[in-house]
Design a protein around this nucleic acid. Structure first.
Lengths: 252, 252
DNA sequence: CTTGACCTTGACGTTGCGTCAAGTTCTAGC
DNA sequence: GCTAGAACTTGACGCAACGTCAAGGTCAAG
């Protein structure tokens, strides 16, 4: 009793292409190959095919199935491993769903994605209290209007700039660069220029106490883990603070 | 202000290979290509890259991202579509997890996978009551011992045989074959031979009322949708019943 | 002998890059 | 000016599991 490739495909609810594929992989060789090259399968082939298709429906990969069929791995073992992988995938998907929903919600509500945005640049409104407390409600208002007055692209550009700066700081810090070195001082200069772009801060208004402001910011980066995170943690923030201090003393 | 490919990759937390890939796809062309062929990117490129990476983290495909960036599709729209797909995937995964757990449980418990097995062959224990009622507890016991006494491979082989038979019946039925035709009668013969393989049934014991048994079975296939399903539904089951009837009258 | 169904091997396409490979260019130190 | 090493380029294979032509041989029926 033997069947042609099409017959087996029909019986098993699959395609002849799949059977040829399994043959190519050595996963299911035909029981007989006629002189004309036609593949023929017997009862044992069918049984083997059942197992393959069952395991495949459960989501196992063909190499894993091959191991099970070769007796190199137990079915339970293979399935247990696969189950762990499935659970991981479930988690990943759940996280993605949550992220997508969050993003859609933000977009629909007309709210801008700020801290959520890729670089974790910084959340503008998140620091409202601090800003108001330290530099007054007026400063916050101006800063807020400035931010909300930007187009999406401008906002993204700003965030990119912010992120780039943060990345460069972090990079330099991890490389153990000296805060007083030319590289670190160039970064400090960029940092102050970047600060100047934010209205409502002393750096943006002529005549403000820029030096004190910069020194204070440096300390804040170290003290507040939310800021420190932007510079690669406390160590990075300390590097930024030190470099800013050197720069401020010399130039401001 | 422009950056080399490596610099951009670092800033964005990706690789130069990815950037070249995006260039190949036309998704993110460099802002400038120097005479030596080197790619250079500006602020706008960075901003665009941010958006690409953000959407990609959410799981969108590159073509979908391209549409959004080209303004051909709104972000919300794209995300909504993607969300639907994510939910489908979640369902699929959940089903797979359930199946794998069920299978593992069955394997670990030493129980054999029967109805669950790919072909939906038939569940042995599921019909316990019917079998006991119709043919007595003794018949069920023998049948049950027979089944549990088989090796896994033997069980699978039996199921394959069962499935192949069901598939052939279904196929013939859908092709509108005449129940009295040679093809249908050959199937009926196979069917009775198959039945003979099950101990505890009249067909297996010499001298039993095989004819009455086969006729009764035919009616049951039609009456019971659980059996009918094995033959492609009620129509298929009727075809089987008719063919068996012709066969029984002529040969049993 | 022809038609049509079924079979074969070969090879590209899919998704998003990772990973060599081979060759060119830039940068920095001697 | 030379050279090593870093950075850049294009090209192409690999991955998972087949789907889908393409081109051509085989076989049963009329």
């Amino acid at each position: 009793m033997d069947w042609s490739i099409q017959e087996v495909a029909k019986l098993a609810g699959t395609t002849s292409r799949t059977l040829r594929h399994y043959d190519d992989l050595g996963l299911l060789p035909p029981s007989r190959v006629a002189a004309n090259g036609y593949r023929h399968y017997d009862q044992a082939s069918l049984v083997r095919l059942q197992r393959i298709l069952l395991l495949r429906e459960l989501g196992l990969g063909l190499p894993a199935i091959a191991e099970v069929l070769a007796g190199e791995a137990s079915e339970v073992h293979a399935l247990a491993g696969h189950l762990a992988w499935l659970r991981q995938e479930q988690e990943r998907l759940a996280r993605q769903v949550a992220s997508v929903e969050k993003t859609m919600h933000a977009l629909e509500g007309g709210e801008q994605i700020m801290a959520q945005d890729m670089f974790d640049g910084f959340d503008h409104t998140q620091y409202r209290e601090e800003v108001v407390e330290r530099w007054g409600a007026d400063a916050y208002e101006r800063s807020d209007r400035w931010w909300r007055g930007m187009s999406d692209d401008e906002k993204r550009a700003w965030q990119a700039r912010t992120a780039a700066l943060g990345a460069d700081w972090t990079d330099a810090a991890t490389r153990g660069v000296d805060p007083a070195s030319a590289e670190a001082q160039a970064l400090a200069k960029r940092h102050v220029e970047w600060l100047t772009g934010i209205p409502g801060t002393p750096t943006a208004a002529p005549g403000g106490d820029v030096k004190g402001y910069v020194l204070g910011l440096g300390e804040m980066y170290v003290a507040d883990p939310r800021f420190a995170a932007n510079y690669g943690g406390t160590d990075g923030a300390e590097f930024v603070r030190d470099a800013l201090r050197v720069y401020a003393e010399a130039n401001l």
